[in-house]
């Protein structure tokens, strides 16, 4: 069991949990994730490692309550425990001195981008961060990102904060005004990552995306997370989660992510109507 030591609500339906998991904290690196099972009847779901404290032996996870597992997770409070957390999983980001780096976070993906921004900065890069959300109140970790980046740009779909539009619009503007990025990282919804990939493609800028495909074990056993990259089937959990954005078949990824949409709805309705088992 993994005890929750701190909990914060960052935005409506976006929560942050600090959890006691010393073995994972000791090994965590930017770009890696954990597989978590909330309770004995829970699914195994992947969540990116947002932060870790090796001295305290804690890890921080940030998530949007979007399905039955994340809603259940959101119901837990300080001193509650999570049944299982395995990690750190996946390959770490390729952090090195590139020169000029742009890291983009969309929605709750900003939380996943944060450790990469920090690591890139620590590796001596000049880091430009672009973070976006649908609307101002859904922006997360703005101050944290500001502290570890050289420049921060914000966009919202509705223009309630920063530039009105998408993060990819901001990226395009920066490139066109002369920013010469050696590498661009993008983490967020698949449509957003695809838009970033299409923005950088004509300029030939190396672009990396962290894929959020459906996973079960997260250790290479099931193949649920398989994605087509450069015409080849790859497993996001053990061969990723980061891939060359220009080679990813986003169309296929988007379809594969929707496979269980109707079941998600059933499970969520059951949870919300009190059918989680706690009241039985």
């Amino acid at each position: 069991m993994y005890k929750i030591v701190a909990k914060r609500e960052l935005a409506p339906k976006i929560k942050s949990l600090e959890i006691c998991a010393p073995e994972i904290a000791e090994k965590a690196q930017a770009g890696q994730f954990v597989i978590l099972r909330v309770d004995e009847k829970g699914e195994r779901i992947p969540l990116t490692l947002v932060d870790w404290n090796r001295e305290k032996g804690t890890i921080t996870l940030i998530f949007l309550e979007i399905g039955v597992s994340t809603e259940k997770l959101g119901m837990l409070g300080v001193n509650d425990a999570i049944s299982n957390i395995a990690g750190p999983l996946g390959n770490p980001s390729e952090v090195k001195h590139y020169g000029s780096v742009c890291v983009i976070g969309g929605g709750v993906g900003t939380a996943s981008a944060y450790p990469i921004i920090r690591a890139m900065k620590e590796a001596g890069n000049r880091v430009v961060a672009i973070v976006g959300a649908r609307t101002a109140e859904l922006l997360v970790l703005e101050d944290e990102v500001k502290q570890v980046s050289d420049e921060l740009y914000i966009s919202t779909d509705d223009g309630t904060k920063g530039r009105k539009g998408f993060v990819s619009d901001v990226l395009k503007m920066l490139i066109e005004t002369g920013y010469a990025f050696n590498v661009v990282y993008a983490i967020g919804p698949s449509v957003m990552m695809r838009a970033v990939a299409e923005t950088t493609r004509p300029f030939g800028i190396k672009t990396v995306v962290s894929l959020n495909s459906i996973m079960v074990d997260g250790m290479g056993m099931c193949g649920a997370c398989r994605v087509t990259v450069g015409g080849q089937t790859r497993f996001a959990c053990v061969e990723g989660p980061e891939f060359d954005a220009h080679k990813v078949d986003f169309g296929e990824l988007l379809k594969r992510q929707m496979v269980y949409l109707s079941e998600e709805k059933i499970a969520l309705e059951r949870l919300r109507s009190g059918g989680c088992g706690c009241h039985e």
Binding site: K41, E43, V216, C222, E263, I266
Partner: peptide, 23 residues
């Protein structure tokens, strides 16, 4: 493996009592 993991390890046959679905 995915099919059997969902069924055996995650008990998808008892969805939605168990959270893991299988179509």
């Amino acid at each position: 493996n995915e099919f059997l993991i969902r069924v055996n390890l995650m008990k998808a046959y008892a969805f939605p009592e168990y959270d893991t679905p299988l179509r």
